[in-house]
Amino acid sequence: MPSETPQAEVGPTGCPHRSGPHSAKGSLEKGSPEDKEAKEPLWIRPDAPSRCTWQLGRPASESPHHHTAPAKSPKILPDILKKIGDTPMVRINKIGKKFGLKCELLAKCEFFNAGGSVKDRISLRMIEDAERDGTLKPGDTIIEPTSGNTGIGLALAAAVRGYRCIIVMPEKMSSEKVDVLRALGAEIVRTPTNARFDSPESHVGVAWRLKNEIPNSHILDQYRNASNPLAHYDTTADEILQQCDGKLDMLVASVGTGGTITGIARKLKEKCPGCRIIGVDPEGSILAEPEELNQTEQTTYEVEGIGYDFIPTVLDRTVVDKWFKSNDEEAFTFARMLIAQEGLLCGGSAGSTVAVAVKAAQELQEGQRCVVILPDSVRNYMTKFLSDRWMLQKGFLKEEDLTEKKPWWWHLRVQELGLSAPLTVLPTITCGHTIEILREKGFDQAPVVDEAGVILGMVTLGNMLSSLLAGKVQPSDQVGKVIYKQFKQIRLTDTLGRLSHILEMDHFALVV
């Protein structure tokens, strides 16, 4: 994948999101292997301009796509893939009243899908469409860049269908997702969380590099694949309309690839034109409109599966009536509230959605109805927002919020430890010299600072030695090549209790 991002070429006709291997024109390309080798690009942008032909009021008969309808489940399912879809609609009884809503608040519980998330729908649909058009064949390999849930859905379907599955996901995604993927037989590649989507090191860039190296491999490409919004247009939206008897006044959905909100909203605009569509985008993402909503100094966020630093091709923002931004604290607070007060075992993005819903639905009156999409299960986040310690460490809970008995030293300040200034190293000294210094002084790690004293990161003896043994660096290389740029900081005025929580999850903390 090139470091400079080429513009994806656009073909003359058809839909841009065809499933299957992508040609340089962004659509299915038939021909000899030699032709494909000559024409197939190194990668295709996940934010390529959409060429979708959908228009409100256009006859369904003019759609270029294969459409399906929700099917009634048999008493005995032939395999677990038949437990994807037909998820329950559940009334939220307490939270709406707590925040003064007059309307009825309903939750579409997508964590009841077989793999635990709304992404099971698009995973199965992308595979079925690729099999139907002859792209996927027995023994082929599926590769997908994902925040985890699409990966789980694909790995689940691949396990049943017999495909090899490789999932490329950023490091910030939970260990629970990784464990589930491994249990399903998927191979996992992790990428830096802070890598831009168009960087060769991003999950998108690495996935395309693997595709170019592995024979008979395919990126189904949830960011561009029409099967993504079509899955929701054909099934999720129809289920909502049936469950609500066609009567709903507002739908609120958090947005990642945009397939969920695009597919549902398009069908609702056709069948229930008075329904307002509300999009939820986390602070630090750029999906919301108008652009002024996205202006923030924050560039990272903890909530998973929603928000991006690019506009995915499948996201149709014209069908969203209003956007709201959400933050991590309210997302996790509301997710825990949904679990504790409503018994809905949902993930953090569901918290984002409901946090926005109780604001947006203030305009609705008694007798009206708001539906929220709860995308995934708490299963993926047992060591994250479900953990009091994690919430404390991230600053989303305060010590006084917890009532468990603490040891005698818990409320003492870090400054009472009488710490001395640490050994520091410059980023320009060599790895070999740094190892000598650390061994001589008896230290395992040291902060790396520039000549102005600005902290650049941390270097550890173990990481340097393993990097040297693996051949990633040489003793003569500058130590700046092996620094940890993500590390926890703590102030002298913070409590030892807070430091204790940090050290339970990290090997060190830097006192500043």
Rank of each mutant, 00 (worst) to 15 (best):
P6D: 09
P16A: 07
S19Y: 09
G20V: 12
S23A: 13
A24C: 12
G26R: 10
L28F: 13
L28R: 03
S32K: 05
S32M: 03
D35F: 01
K36Y: 09
K39W: 14
A48C: 13
P49T: 11
C52G: 02
P64L: 09
H66N: 06
A69Q: 10
P70K: 10
A71D: 11
A71Q: 12
K72L: 12
P74D: 11
K75L: 12
I76A: 06
I76Q: 03
L77A: 08
I80V: 12
D86K: 10
V90H: 03
R91F: 07
I95V: 10
K97L: 12
C103G: 12
L106K: 08
L106M: 14
F111Q: 02
G116Q: 07
D120M: 05
D120A: 13
R125D: 15
M126A: 08
I127C: 04
D129M: 07
E131S: 15
E131H: 03
E131N: 08
G134T: 06
K137H: 10
G139M: 06
G139Y: 07
D140P: 03
P145W: 03
P145Y: 01
G148Y: 00
T150Q: 02
A159S: 02
G162C: 03
R164M: 01
I166F: 07
I167H: 07
M173K: 06
E176Y: 01
V178R: 10
V180A: 10
G185E: 09
A186Q: 03
I188T: 06
T193S: 03
T193K: 09
S199N: 08
E201A: 03
S202I: 05
H203A: 12
V204T: 14
G205Q: 10
N212Q: 11
N212A: 02
I219T: 07
Q222T: 01
Y233V: 00
A237H: 06
D238G: 10
E239Y: 06
I240N: 00
L241K: 05
D245N: 12
G246P: 07
M250H: 01
L251R: 01
V252L: 14
G258P: 00
G259L: 00
G259C: 00
I261M: 15
G263H: 01
A265C: 02
L268N: 00
K269R: 13
K269G: 03
K271W: 06
C272E: 08
P273I: 06
P273K: 15
P273Q: 08
